[in-house]
Write a protein that binds this DNA or RNA. Structure first.
Lengths: 341, 341
DNA sequence: TTGTATGCGTTATCAC
DNA sequence: GTGATAACGCATACAA
C-alpha cells in the first residue's frame, strides 16, 4: 500500500501552490479555468482524495455520528435492523459516517465520544422514562436525537411510536372480536429494565383500556428469552383458564407464547387470538401471519437521522417531537372469541 | 456546548508544557510521579479528552473500520444482524469505531474510503465468485477481510460457511428420511446476482449430491421477494407433483414456500419436508421450528473482525481462510417421506 | 525530568 | 488569480 497522495503532491505536479489546489477542490471562485482544469486532471491521474481527518481537524467536526443501541443479545431482531437501515440511508446521502455502538456505554465513554470529536451527534435507542444519557447530553449541550422518549422531553428531539395507543388499538381489535379476557405479556429485560419506555407505555395503554371497558387486566412481565416467555405464558393460562387472547409486546415473545399454546393444543386463531406490536416483515414471516400493530422501524430510523442532520447543520433548527399514530394490520392470528364453558 | 478543552488548556492549568501532558496521557516513562499526578487531576477536573482526529492525523490511522453490506432491502434479516453484533463486539473491545455501509459503493467510493483515511480496513460482505471489490482492494494493498469467498482467494483472509457441504448435508438428511424428490429454491436477487457465492455453491453441492445418489435435480432460482418465491414454488409443485421435500437457501424464502404449501394444503412435515440454511434464531421462530443447517453468523462476524484487527496491528499476520463445516439441527419441519401414489 | 520545535494534511487569512 | 503562512490539536525527536 503506497503512501497516500497529499495536496502537496498535487500542487507540485500541477505546478501551483496548495492553496490553489484547495480552492479548486472546494469549488471556490478565484481560480483560472485553465488552472482548475489542470489541477483536476492531476487529481484524477494521481488518484488523490483529501485526507478526511485533516479536513475534520480544521473544521472542528468529525462528519460521523453514532447510533447507540445497547443490545441485549436476547432481544435483537428484524426490528432493530430496520432502524439502522433507515438511519444509514440518510446518513450516507448526507455524507456522514454511521457508527453502530452495541455495547452499553458509561457516562465517561458517552461524553468522550463527543469530547474526542469522534462523533458530531448521536441517536439514542432503548430509551427509558428516566434516562441518564439524555440528562447528561442535554446538560452538556451535545447534539442527539432519540428513538423513543422520556418522561421529561424538554429541549430534545425524538421520534417514537405511540405505544400507549398501540396497546389500546390491539385491545380494541380483540374486544370487537368478542374477547374479554385479554392477557398482556410485557417485556422487561436486562437492558430493557424497569422504566423502559415502550414497556411502560404499553402496559399503561392496556390497563387504561381494561379499566375503560371493565375488563379484568391480566398482565405479566417476561424477558425476551423464549423459556421465560413460555413459562410466563403457561402460568397465565393456568391461573386464568378464561384467556382467549394475548398481546405480545415484542417479536421476541412470539416463540415462547406460541410454544405454550401449542403444548396445550390451543390453535391460532380458533382457540386463542394473538396480536403483536411488531414489524410487518416479522408478522408475515410467522405462521399464521400475525395480526399486529405495525412497527414502522425503517421510517423511524429515517426520521431520526434526518432530525439529527438538521440539528447539526441548521442553526435555526427547532426541536421536533414526533409521536407516530399506530396502525393495525389484521392478518390471520386473530379471530372471533371462542365460546367456552 | 462549550469549546473543547485541548491539551494546551491542560498544560496551562497544570503549569507544564504540552509535551509533558502528552507523556502523562500516554503513560510514557520520564514523568515525575508528582507531575503526572497533578496533570491527571487537572485532566479529571477539566474533563479533558484528547482530540481523536488530531491523534489520528499524527498517527496516520483512523481507528475506524467499515463493514460493507450492500443491502437489497428485500433480503435483510436476522442473519445479517448477527454478523454485525459479532463484529461490533470485537471492534468495540479493540477500540475501533464500527461503520456500517449499506449503500452499494462505486469503485471510486471504495478507494476513497481508504485514501481519505476514513477507514483503516473493511469487512466485505455479499461476496461474489468474481468480485471487483476484492480485486480492487487486493491490487491496491488495502487491508480487508471477507465474509464469504471468491473463486480466487490468493492473498486474502476470509471466513465463510461451506455452503457446498451445507447443501449436501441437508440433502443427506432428507435422503435418509426416504425423500427422493428434493427441490431446491436458490437465491438470486438484485445485489445477490449471478455468481453470488453462497447461491452458486449451494446449487453446486445440491447438484453433486443428486448426481451421486441418482436423484433427479429439481432446482429453480428466486429472488428473496415473497411473491416470487411463492410463484416459483408453485410452479415447481405443478411441474413435479412427486416433490416431497424442499431446501430453502435463505430465511427470506421461507414465507413464500410455506405459503405455497399451505395453499395446496400440504402440511409440514407430514406431506412435505423443508430444510433451510438459516440462523438458529430464525429457525426457532418459525412454526413448526425448522430443521436447518445452522448459520453461525455471530461467530463469523466475530472471526472476521478478529482477523481484520490482527491484519491491521500485527506486522507478521498471515492470511487465514476459514471455511466452517456445516452442522445440521433437526427440528420439526422434516419427517419421513410420505408414501404417494 | 522537562520543554522547544517540527510535522501530520488541510483550510483560511492575508498579502501580492 | 495566486501564493506564503498561520492555524487545527496532538505526538515526538531533540535539546536542555
Amino acid at each position: 500500500m503506497a503512501r497516500n497522495i497529499t495536496i502537496q503532491d498535487v500542487a507540485r505536479a500541477a505546478g501551483v501552490s496548495i492553496t490553489t489546489v484547495s480552492r479548486a477542490l472546494n469549488n471556490k471562485p478565484d481560480v483560472a479555468p485553465a488552472t482548475r482544469q489542470r489541477i483536476l486532471e492531476v487529481i484524477e491521474e494521481l488518484g488523490y482524495a483529501p485526507h478526511a481527518q485533516a479536513q475534520n481537524l480544521v473544521a472542528g467536526k468529525s462528519h460521523s455520528i453514532a447510533v447507540l443501541f445497547p443490545a441485549d443479545t436476547a432481544g435483537f431482531s428484524q426490528l432493530e435492523f430496520e432502524f439502522f437501515l433507515g438511519a444509514a440511508n440518510v446518513f450516507s446521502k448526507a455524507n456522514y459516517l454511521f457508527n453502530l455502538i452495541f455495547e452499553p456505554v458509561s457516562e465517561h465513554q458517552l461524553l468522550n465520544l463527543y469530547r474526542t470529536t469522534q462523533i458530531d451527534g448521536a441517536i439514542l435507542m432503548e430509551i427509558h422514562l428516566q434516562d441518564w444519557r439524555v440528562d447528561l447530553l442535554r446538560e452538556h449541550g451535545y447534539p442527539f436525537v432519540m428513538i423513543g422518549h422520556c418522561a421529561d422531553n424538554t429541549g430534545v428531539s425524538y421520534v417514537d411510536l405511540d405505544f400507549d395507543a398501540a396497546a389500546a388499538l390491539a385491545c380494541e381489535h380483540l374486544l370487537k372480536l368478542g374477547h374479554r379476557s385479554i392477557a398482556l405479556i410485557n417485556l422487561i429485560g436486562q437492558v430493557r429494565s424497569e422504566g423502559y419506555g415502550p414497556s411502560t407505555r404499553v402496559l399503561q395503554g392496556y390497563l387504561r383500556f381494561c379499566q375503560k371497558h371493565r375488563l379484568q387486566p391480566i398482565a405479566a412481565d417476561a424477558t425476551g428469552r423464549t423459556e421465560d416467555v413460555y413459562r410466563v405464558t403457561s402460568e397465565l393460562l393456568d391461573a386464568h383458564p378464561d384467556i382467549t387472547a394475548f398481546i405480545a409486546h415484542h417479536g421476541s415473545e412470539v416463540v415462547g407464547i406460541t410454544r405454550a399454546l401449542l403444548q396445550r393444543n390451543l390453535k391460532l386463531p380458533q382457540d386463542v387470538s394473538l396480536v403483536g406490536i411488531i414489524s410487518d416483515k416479522t408478522a408475515e414471516l410467522l405462521t399464521p401471519p400475525m395480526t399486529a400493530v405495525s412497527f414502522p422501524a425503517f421510517q423511524m430510523g429515517l426520521r431520526a437521522a434526518q432530525m439529527l442532520i438538521a440539528k447539526l447543520q441548521d442553526p435555526n433548527y427547532r426541536d421536533q417531537q414526533i409521536l407516530l399514530k399506530p396502525r393495525l394490520v389484521v392478518r390471520e392470528s386473530s379471530g372471533p372469541a371462542p365460546q367456552r364453558a
